[in-house]
Design a protein around this nucleic acid. Sequence first.
DNA 1: CCACACACCTGTAAGC
DNA 2: TGCTTACAGGTGTGTG
Length: 275
Amino acid sequence: MPELPEVETTRAGLAPHLEGRRVAGAVLRRPDLRWPIPDAIERVLPGQRIEAVRRRAKYLLIDTAAGSALLHLGMSGSLRVLPAQLPPRTHDHVDLILEEDARSPRQVLRFNDPRRFGCLLWQPHGEVHALLRGLGPEPLSDGFDGDYLFELSRGRKAPVKTFLMDQAVVVGVGNIYAAEALFAARISPLRAAGRVSRERYTALADAVKAILGHAIARGGTTLRDFISPDGAPGYFEQELSAYGRGGEPCPRCGRALKQASIGQRATVWCGHCQR
DNA sequence: CCACACACCTGTAAGC
DNA sequence: TGCTTACAGGTGTGTG
């Protein structure tokens, strides 16, 4: 599930259920996900009041006075707020037990992740976790634009798609949205990043903002069902122009979309419209 | 500094 | 109907 819109949808869905509530405990059904789960999750977090639920890149931060729980959903992770008595299912690796309050019965924040590429870490108050250092700007921020991409890309020989997906360049552009943004900007994903003009990078940055912004807005429309057993998709397959459509006609010119592996990732593009 | 291959793990769909 | 294989939305690490 998770590209940036899915993570932002998760954040927005969780925040009203978590903010202001106290963590009563943590249940770890295994000691690790991608990395070992630190002691602080069991020893420091319980008793803390959740002040905010934030997002940086594809990381979620659950802020307390003592520090922040740092979560990443990897390829297959999901978070849900559920009644505490609901028995855990396969791959429900961690529960953060929420202290009951007047408005709700006892609930847990449950982390499910079949592939376990996700993580749950701890960032002490006042520190910035190593994983958050060296990240590029948020794609929807003012610091991300065509000029930024143009200047940073000079001399780079990697394919522009690889460049765009580099989290040190800009965060949150995963495989789906990289394909979509390059299609919208009519740039071939194979083109060397250093050989894309300033004008075309402006189109690309605009496309990234428009596509991610749209997907986040759409994800937001399903938040009402957030606690229900059905997960809320953050993107809509029928709205994708290129991703997952290799061999199908290009929505713009009708020629068959090409598919190949670029940087070990499946990539779809139109050899006619994208140069 | 940059580019690239590989690793992690499980579920699902396609192929035989 | 099985068994095998390829592939999946991410990203840190190691190599050259």
